[in-house]
Simulated scan of single mutants.
Amino acid sequence: MKIPFNKPYLSGNETKYIEDAVKSGKISGNGKYTQQCQAFFEKRYNIKKTLLTTSCTDALEMAAILINIQPGDEVIMPSYTFVSTANAFVLRGAKIIFADSRENHPNIDETKIESLITEKTKAIVPVHYAGISCEMDTIMDLAKKYNLYVIEDAAQAIDSYYTDREGARKPLGTIGDLAAFSFHETKNIISGEGGLLAINNEKFIVRAEIIWEKGTNRSSFFRGEVDKYGWVDIGSSFLPSEIVAAFLWAQLENLEQIQTVRKTHWEKYYNNLYDWAQSNEIELPNVPTYATNNAHMFYLVCKDLEQRTTVLEYLKQNEILAVFHYISLHESPFYREKHCGNTLTQSDKFTDQLLRLPLYYEVDTDEVIKKLKQLWK
């Protein structure tokens, strides 16, 4: 493929730091590079505690354990999201209650949440799609009113912000009780696979570390806080190796450069495709005034499924790989019969009409733009 959908970017020091980790004799996890990465997030974004994980999926699963999800609990989230958002809670026995997306953005429609809350509701899981913030004031107000937890799925949202109604600018992942980030190879900052749990509610800090260490108080032992360690809670092997953390550290060192380049690509797409999109009834990404854009993704919302299919096939013929994104989870074979039946018109729209263009550090946006404009004059 002449222009792939994604191409991982190496900032320069990845292999150097991996070699250093190997030579140190400590590659099993929670070593120097793990601690440097966690400290980076805690300092830069003022997060109370962070824990690297092997994936964003694992971070979400840790969050489900921490809020003590039990069989029969209900968790509200958008249907237009990746399966991991739901799986983490389904694995603990929760019933997923899907909310519709906004009309002008795939994010959860905050005005549709309250009607879905019942006495069984335990948490709300907003997903910051494309790195664009959900309207968090309303979500946090509802959580306070009904005594619910908020877990931000910030898989795509590194280095993106929300401005609340008081004018405070808050990094995504710092607003809810817990948050999960992804460093999958398709994200802005990568480690192949990898994730991070952000802990903003202090009551979860001690237990999170235990769950992270397979249910043991091993970390406390190594800090000299206990004279021996053992099995004290449920948990799993959620922490990544030092090799993964070393790769990630090289990326984090170059966060600002990577973000600057990605934002340049995003803006070039937007500015050069604006008139073309309007003339062909195609919507470009919407960034609300309360949100910033971290250039995780550039997408088109075609006028219908037929138009999207035409664009995808045309680009493929010209060796440009564009892709559609999620099939809404309420329509999935696994959950269709379990869905409570509320109509999710906007989720269905994005399932049929959203198309993602290639966006990575070295992408040739000029070529993609040129080919799109040749499709319809």
Rank of each mutant, 00 (worst) to 15 (best):
K170G: 00
S191G: 11
A198Q: 05
E209K: 15
A168D: 03
R207N: 14
E166A: 12
N217V: 04
Q156A: 15
T163Y: 08
D153Y: 06
L172S: 08
A157D: 01
I210H: 15
G192L: 02
I199C: 11
A198R: 06
S191P: 01
I205Q: 01
R218S: 13
K214Q: 12
T216K: 08
G194R: 09
I175L: 07
E209H: 12
F204W: 07
N188K: 13
I205H: 01
G167W: 00
I205P: 00
W212P: 10
I211W: 12
T216E: 10
I205L: 01
F181L: 11
G215S: 02
S220E: 15
K203I: 09
T163N: 10
D177I: 06
I199R: 10
F221W: 13
I211S: 14
I211V: 15
A154W: 04
E213F: 14
E185C: 03
E213T: 14
R165N: 15
N200H: 07
N217E: 00
R169Q: 14
T186R: 10
A157S: 13
E213V: 07
W212V: 01
S182T: 06
S182N: 04
I205Y: 02
Y162R: 08
I175W: 06
L196F: 00
G195I: 01
D159M: 01
E152C: 12
V150E: 05
A157Y: 03
S160P: 08
G192V: 01
G176P: 02
L196Y: 03
I199A: 13
L178S: 08
R218Y: 14
T163K: 12
V150G: 09
G215L: 00
R169L: 14
S220K: 15
N188G: 11
N201I: 00
I190R: 09
A208T: 04
E202D: 05
I151C: 09
Y161W: 12
N217C: 03
Q156I: 06
A154E: 08
F222M: 11
E152N: 12
N217K: 03
A157V: 00
G194D: 11
A208Q: 09
E166H: 13
S191K: 01
L197C: 07
N201F: 04
G167T: 02
K214S: 15
A154V: 06
T186S: 14
V206M: 04
L196A: 05
I190K: 03
I205R: 01
R207Y: 12
I189F: 05
S219N: 13
E202P: 03
E213C: 15
E166M: 11
S160V: 04
P171M: 09
K214A: 13
F222K: 12
H184A: 14
F222H: 14
